[in-house]
Design a protein around this nucleic acid. Structure first.
Lengths: 173, 173
DNA sequence: GCAACTGATTGCAAAATGCAATCGGATTTG
DNA sequence: CAAATCCGATTGCATTTTGCAATCAGTTGC
């Protein structure tokens, strides 16, 4: 890992970790989309990441301690990528980032409903989400009750998609 | 301004705004360092931004609605850059980013004391800070009482520097 | 045996970055 | 009043990063 930094400022060092156009997109897809494999990240990315960039960023994020990689027992060639606690603790930042983007940028309704729900859920929901991710990626015990936060966000997303499809039937273009 | 986006996801759109190595550094120097002029940003940057990059980013941030530019009445050639509400509302994100960096990255003590104080102050302190910035950059009325948040952070910084200098006298290298 | 899929790698063009020198005008200094 | 300094940039150029398409060798399912 590269250890010569521009400065010891925490904001600068954070930017050196994910101050590029792809690293946080990959982490977003792992956190919110539940993606664990190379191809899932490659083909599932709505932004269309290239395979060489994805390979480079996965390697970089591993060197930085944000991800780990393990063999998939069901497929000798598959690798499973896992979030570390360092990456899981980005959830509040992602929540704030989504909230800020929702206010100031031309977001689409179906892609911002998750950010809206996460904002409304506040820190308690973020903690729930981080516990879910610790269970999923670090083998921590599962939360006692209730659906996962990802399932709640996904349900919200699907409700918006369904409502928009209905609107399209009633009011076709 | 460029209006073709990779996706309408709020996190992606936020990254398109400041997902590079310099934009947030410039905003940090304006917010925490109180810098308003080109040269202040150029020479005051500990990370050493190049003048062409600074010029490009200032232009870009203006096009995105994060900054405005005005003539300095005291100097016909000077320009004063001001934060917009869009940029001021990044304060909570910067606070979280600093807090995260302080935990996970090799920050220096003197450059992370501000992040520590801002984290301990919590959302009420962030609101105070944003009010100060609205007064400074948008002409809003000043807060009723007490020192500015920037002054509090600066005092903390100087206390650390003084303490470290004292330690160097007592325990020279 | 063969097509589809696995996590990547390679080659190459285009864009972004880093760095030093420089610009014309405004201001300060001696 | 002339020289030096400062103002916000701009230019040229080498290096680095990115984006894109094609390709790779090994694994799996049929």
């Amino acid at each position: 890992m590269n250890t010569d930094h521009r400065s010891g400022c925490p904001i600068n060092l954070s930017l050196e970790v994910f101050g590029d156009r792809w690293s946080l997109i990959i982490l977003r897809d792992m956190i919110f989309g539940g993606r664990r494999h190379f191809r899932e990240l490659l083909n599932g990315s709505i932004e269309g990441i290239a395979s060489n960039i994805l390979a480079d960023r996965l390697k970089r994020l591993m060197e930085l301690g944000m991800l780990t990689k393990a063999d998939d027992p069901s497929h000798k060639q598959k690798a499973i990528y896992s979030l570390t606690e360092m990456a899981i603790s980005l959830v509040p930042i992602l929540a704030h980032l989504g909230a800020w983007g929702r206010v100031w940028l031309p977001v689409s309704e179906e892609l911002s409903i998750r950010a809206e729900l996460l904002e409304k859920g506040g820190p308690p929901m973020w903690e729930h989400f981080m516990d879910d991710l610790r269970h999923e990626h670090l083998g921590a015990p599962a939360r006692a009750s209730g659906p996962t936060v990802r399932a709640i966000l996904q349900a919200g997303y699907e409700a918006v998609v369904a409502r928009k499809a209905l609107g399209a039937v009633r009011d076709p273009a």
